[in-house]
């Protein structure tokens, strides 16, 4: 079980209010991702749930029970830190065994759980090494192993992949998702990388300055962002957002259109501009189009084979049905 409820939770460090009153429910078995720019309070929120920080006011309930005053260990949650936080003087085996040793799990049960975790995480050959003798990805796996053996009611991950190189990051991402499918345990995952959020989450919580901007499934956030911030944050490359005349024509202060919802042609279209940098990914090409009179740069996704070159004139036509309209307050209209 792992249903976590935050009820009007706030957190201040001295005078600085980092988390304004915040309500959130995380259902049992869900994979929830907290995403937002650096410094928006994601780690703080996670640490409040873990019990590593005390809430200033409000209540945290785990499976319906008030856990606000409980010590971290009593909450039955396991955390994987960004720095891995392995114990450097202990072997991998001892690292993984540590939480069980503290909980007084019998030796043979400890051994059974270590062996099954090591097998699941490809660590069997490394059990007698020290963390210092492992690669970044292996250390990350040890940290996850240490969390698994506790059989927690929820896992908390704080940017666990940000110290890995790009290729490894994709691999570990899949492994964590696989783990979630297999264990079906609640997982809360913090990241500033919207690609990680989109690919992994059942439910994304977008944060800005401690405020929840929107909660929803990846596709909900993609299709119906509640405001300009979410619209700009979710999706890669970023949504094109501009105001002025074109926006007024659609009866809004600002309008947004994703690069993939703009058709490009060399002959005719609604808007025209000059091709700047082209980013070729093979399957697609992202064109940065200037001098459109809309915004400094408009990003467009085109077919990888479209024959355009730097400095060519190009015509753009937005897919009107995929247009996002925003009011003066930045809210979805």
């Amino acid at each position: 079980m792992g249903r976590i409820t935050l009820d009007k939770v706030t957190k201040s460090f001295g005078e600085v209010n980092v988390i304004p009153p915040l309500d959130l429910t995380i259902n049992d078995g869900e994979f929830v991702v907290f995403v937002g720019p650096s410094g928006c309070g994601k780690s703080t929120l996670l640490r409040l749930i873990a019990g590593l920080e005390d809430v200033t006011s409000g209540q945290i309930r785990i499976d319906g029970k008030d856990a606000t005053q409980q010590a971290p260990a009593q909450r039955g949650l396991a955390m994987v830190f960004q720095s891995y936080a392995l114990y450097p003087h202990m072997s991998v085996r001892k690292n993984i065994a540590f939480p069980m040793k503290m909980a007084g799990v019998p030796e043979d049960e400890q051994k059974r759980r270590i062996d099954s975790a090591a097998a699941a995480l490809n660590l069997t050959d490394y059990l007698d090494r020290r963390p210092g003798q492992l690669s970044g990805g292996q250390r990350q796996r040890v940290a996850i192993g240490r969390a698994i053996v506790r059989e927690p009611s929820a896992f908390l991950f704080d940017e666990p992949l940000s110290n890995l190189d790009a290729a490894l990051r994709v691999g570990m991402r899949l492994e964590i998702m696989e783990l979630h499918k297999r264990l079906a345990t609640t997982m809360i995952y913090v990241t500033h990388d919207q690609v990680e959020a989109m690919t992994m989450a059942d439910k994304i919580v977008v944060l800005r300055a401690g405020n929840i901007e929107q909660v929803g499934s990846p596709l909900e956030l993609y299709h119906t962002p509640r405001n300009e911030f979410v619209a700009g944050f979710i999706g890669s490359p970023k949504m094109n957002i501009f105001g002025g005349n074109p926006a007024q024509q659609h009866g809004a202060t600002k309008i947004g259109i994703r690069p993939e919802h703009i058709a490009a042609s060399t002959e005719t279209g609604t808007w025209s501009g000059v091709v700047g940098v082209a980013e070729h990914l093979g399957s697609d090409t992202f064109l940065h189009v200037h001098e459109t009179g809309l915004a400094e740069t408009v990003t467009v996704r085109v077919d990888g084979e479209l024959p355009v070159r730097h400095g060519d004139r190009i015509f753009l036509s937005p897919d009107e049905s995929k247009l996002h309209r925003f009011s003066e307050q930045g809210l979805r209209a």
């Binding site: 590593l52 971290p72 260990a73 396991a78 955390m79 830190f81 936080a85 114990y87 939480p99």
Partner: peptide
């Protein structure tokens, strides 16, 4: 973080 990890453990 090591101390915090131990605390969680």
């Amino acid at each position: 973080e090591q101390l915090e990890a131990a605390e969680m453990d």
